[in-house]
């Protein structure tokens, strides 16, 4: 670069650079002998191969797997009934019988955390799944159709983003009624917008892609173009975002429960467990009471974030890396 002010990355000659300056990118431009992994093994195998190379992502995947397993089999393997109160045995510090101690009502905290996990994972996955469904549909329609469709969806997104999320959630849960379902409804209603926006942007850009025009030139209709040509190429960043947002949903639900909204008071939900520990926050030796649920939330959030990070890199077919 001849000027210090404009020194960005090294300017790469579109031709020579492709094969040369980017490490690992063995240039399709010049690449005669493109190193090729398992032939015909499909793209999932490729994605998995790239994912495996990211150590943090593998840690995240382990965490997520354990969490999901716990959510499924948890209630059958807990040492105690997570709901069973024992007023004679309250606020006991961790011991051999009660690994994480017992809470104000004498419930086994370890069993509570495991039960809470089922709740967190269920709400997290369902919320994100519904958000994806709504977000991708609206985003794809807005991006592909453009014009008035786009205008309407964009205003819709703006309106929903204008709600203060916490207040909005409280209002919705109160309006729908107590329990877990209203929480999911509230979190979906307040959470689909980013997915829609991301999808819309991707679709808008890919709509002009030359391979879309190529598909049209062989007679493909709109439906096929969107489903086969645009969405598969648009979806990667949306999925990555969704995975990160599972952690956000878990935190959001915990916040609501902390405030006493949604999940019934007797359910050992993580936010609820922290809430009941609040009076003992400054009591020496009582740290265990809030530390366990807090760590559970943190680990869950991090686990999904790590996986999302690994997905970001592995979903890009162009980043193949060396063998």
């Amino acid at each position: 670069m001849t000027t210090p002010t404009s020194a960005g990355g090294p300017p790469v000659d579109a031709e020579a650079g492709a094969g040369v300056l980017l490490p690992g990118a063995d240039s399709a431009t010049s690449g005669a002998a493109v190193p090729i992994g398992a032939r015909g093994s499909g793209q999932l195998a490729d994605v998995w191969r790239r994912f495996r190379r990211n150590r943090l992502a593998m840690v995240g995947l382990a965490i997520v797997t354990v969490l999901i397993l716990l959510a499924i089999i948890g209630p059958y393997v807990t040492p105690y009934n997570a709901f069973e109160q024992n007023l004679a045995n309250t606020l006991k510090p961790p011991s051999a019988e009660h690994w994480f101690g017992t809470d104000v009502l004498g419930r086994d905290l370890f069993s509570g955390i495991i039960y809470g996990c089922r709740l967190a994972i269920t709400v997290g996955l369902l919320t994100v799944a519904f958000s994806l469904l709504i977000g991708i549909t609206l985003g794809a329609v807005a991006g592909f159709k453009g014009g008035a469709w786009d205008g309407v969806v964009a205003r819709f997104i703006d309106v929903f983003l204008a709600f203060p999320p916490l207040v909005g959630a409280i209002v919705i849960v109160r309006a729908v009624g107590g329990g877990v379902t209203p929480v999911i409804v509230a979190l979906v209603v307040l959470g689909w917008m980013t997915t829609a926006r991301l999808t819309r942007g991707q679709v808008l850009a890919l709509r002009e892609a030359e391979y879309v025009e190529a598909a049209r030139s062989i007679g493909a209709g709109n439906r096929r173009i969107v489903l086969r040509h645009i969405l598969p190429n648009a979806i990667a960043p949306v999925l990555v975002y969704s995975f990160t947002s599972i952690g956000v949903v878990v935190v959001a639900m915990a916040s609501l429960s902390y405030l006493g909204i949604g999940v019934p008071p007797d359910v050992p939900e993580w936010g609820r467990l922290i809430s009941q520990a609040t009076p003992f926050l400054r009591v020496p030796g009582m740290t265990y009471l809030w530390l366990a649920p807090a760590l559970a939330i943190a680990i869950t959030t991090l686990g999904f974030a790590f996986v999302a990070d690994g997905m970001r890199d592995s979903l890009d077919p162009k980043l193949r890396g060396g063998n």
């Binding site: 025009e213 190529a214 190429n233």
Partner: peptide
């Protein structure tokens, strides 16, 4: 098409 990199669906 002109650009053989853009005219084939990468997936």
């Amino acid at each position: 098409f002109q650009d053989p990199y853009a005219s084939l669906n990468p997936r």
